[in-house]
Design a protein around this nucleic acid. Structure first.
Length: 260
DNA sequence: ATGGTAGAAGGTCTA
């Protein structure tokens, strides 16, 4: 079973690119971020025609996430507990129940960027990470196979960044951010992409500005974190880097895992 | 050189 995450940076602007990738990669489950539209505007039919069940947690202009699955989905939830005043659409979760494999819980997330840091946006990022940690802890206590996938807006380590010094004070790479991400890993989660030999394929995002793609000035911020019961089933993982070079590409590329 | 680009807007804001 192939599970992928892809920050599309507007589903309406990106639809031809996204469908092209779906037809090529054929993920069983995909979580999308920054769809930037309300639920009713999401092009669900395009995915349903390809055999996907569609769950959307949309928002006008900003944010917005979706979960698409060829297998049946149950228990769809939208948003994270812990802040009733949070109106930003950044989290969607479902239990994927294949006919021929064990169920797998999948959380799709778009973690706040947090810039400028320090400041209120950064405080929101750190609070959001605490709420995510609480949700992950629940799944770990249930000893459930689960994958938390998405745009974490976290560069975990120096090796995930073309120029660590240039990013030192950025909300994606500040010490508090890295520590909060480590706290998630220390719960017992596996960073799936860390496990494989990527032969120089390390990054998942290249800024539109300053020729970042052409110079390979990238960062790794799109991740799939797996509970032990899910990590035991991990077979392969990859980054579909070539997508970044296409016309009208998102600034992120798809990242995927294959699980038994 | 606090620029540069992209998207949703139709103001600037977010990234």
């Amino acid at each position: 079973m192939k599970i992928a995450t892809y920050n599309v940076n507007s589903i309406s602007a990106r639809l031809p690119r996204v469908l092209e990738w779906f037809d090529d990669a054929k993920p069983d489950v995909a979580v999308l971020q920054e769809i930037k539209c309300v639920d009713e505007k999401f092009p669900a039919a395009e995915f349903e025609d390809r055999g996907y069940n569609v769950a959307v947690h949309g928002q006008k202009t900003y944010n917005g996430v979706a979960l698409l699955s060829r297998h049946p989905i149950e228990d769809v939830t939208r948003g994270l507990d812990g802040d009733n005043d949070d109106e930003q659409a950044r989290y969607i979760e479902a239990l994927v129940t294949p006919d021929n494999a064990a169920p797998l819980r999948v959380g799709g997330l778009y973690l706040p960027n947090g810039n400028p840091a320090p400041g209120p946006k950064y405080d929101y990022k750190l609070r959001w990470m605490k709420r995510l940690q609480a949700r992950i802890q629940e799944c770990l206590c249930d000893e459930e196979p689960a994958v938390f996938a998405g745009d974490f807006n976290v560069i975990p380590q120096d090796e995930d960044c073309h120029d660590p010094a240039a990013w030192a004070d950025d909300a994606l790479f500040r010490q508090e951010t890295k520590s909060a991400f480590r706290a998630l890993e220390f719960l017992g989660l596996t960073d799936a992409l860390r496990q494989i030999d990527r032969e120089g394929i390390r990054y998942t995002f290249w800024d539109y500005q300053r020729g970042a793609w052409e110079k390979d000035h990238g960062i790794r911020i799109d991740h799939l974190l797996m509970t032990p019961q899910a990590a035991d089933r991990l077979k392969d993982a990859g980054i579909d880097r070539k997508v970044r070079g296409r016309e009208k590409a998102s600034d992120h590329v798809p990242v995927w895992i294959e699980v038994a």
